[in-house]
Computed example of a mutant assay.
Amino acid sequence: MVKGYQKDRSSEPHIQSKFDDNKVRLLTVPELCKAQSVPLHLVNEVSPNISYEGLGQGIDYLQGVGVGMVIARDVLNGY
């Protein structure tokens, strides 16, 4: 996902309607959180536009956690 996802550009991922093959929709904020492993409570208190923007500029949450753990480990071990 990229910043501006909510603008509904044709290059963005869409979900096809279960009921009508001609209709598609954008992922909801909770669906985007799940796709990027982001805990929903991190974006729950802000507007959907801000949530989409923040999620669009981010990386998979678990990758960020992993990088943080490696940095913390190396700092604590004096590397």
Rank of each mutant, 00 (worst) to 15 (best):
V38F: 14
G56S: 05
V65I: 15
Q6Y: 15
H14G: 01
V38N: 07
I15T: 14
G56V: 04
T28Y: 02
F19Q: 08
S17D: 15
L32P: 00
I59A: 03
I15A: 11
L76Y: 15
V38S: 04
E31T: 08
F19R: 10
S10I: 14
V67T: 04
V70I: 06
E53I: 02
Y5M: 02
T28S: 07
Y52P: 04
V65Y: 08
K23A: 07
D74M: 14
V70N: 01
G54K: 06
N22A: 12
R9Y: 10
P39H: 12
P39F: 08
Q63Y: 09
L62T: 11
R25A: 03
K34R: 10
G4P: 11
P13F: 09
S47E: 11
H41Q: 05
Q36W: 11
C33H: 11
P13Y: 07
D8Q: 11
G54L: 13
K23L: 15
V2Y: 04
G4N: 15
S37I: 05
C33S: 10
N22S: 13
V70H: 02
Q63P: 00
A35Q: 05
G58E: 06
I50K: 12
G64V: 03
A35N: 03
A35I: 00
S51V: 01
R9N: 11
V75C: 07
E53H: 12
G78F: 12
M1N: 04
D20I: 05
P13E: 06
K34A: 08
Q6C: 09
I50N: 09
I71Y: 10
D60T: 00
Y52N: 05
S17W: 14
Q16N: 04
L32S: 00
R73S: 12
I50S: 11
N44F: 06
G58P: 05
V70A: 02
Y79V: 13
V46C: 10
G4A: 09
L55W: 07
E12K: 07
Q6S: 15
L42S: 00
A35G: 04
L32A: 02
E45V: 00
L76F: 15
V67S: 01
K7S: 14
I15D: 10
P48S: 08
N49A: 14
D60R: 07
Y61R: 00
D20V: 05
C33K: 06
E53K: 09
L42D: 01
M69I: 05
V46K: 07
E31W: 04
D74I: 07
H41A: 02
G68E: 08
V67Q: 03
L32R: 02
P48F: 03
I50L: 14
E53T: 13
V38E: 05
R9E: 08
K18G: 10
Q6W: 15
E45Y: 07
L76T: 13
S11V: 12
D8G: 08
I59T: 01
S10R: 14
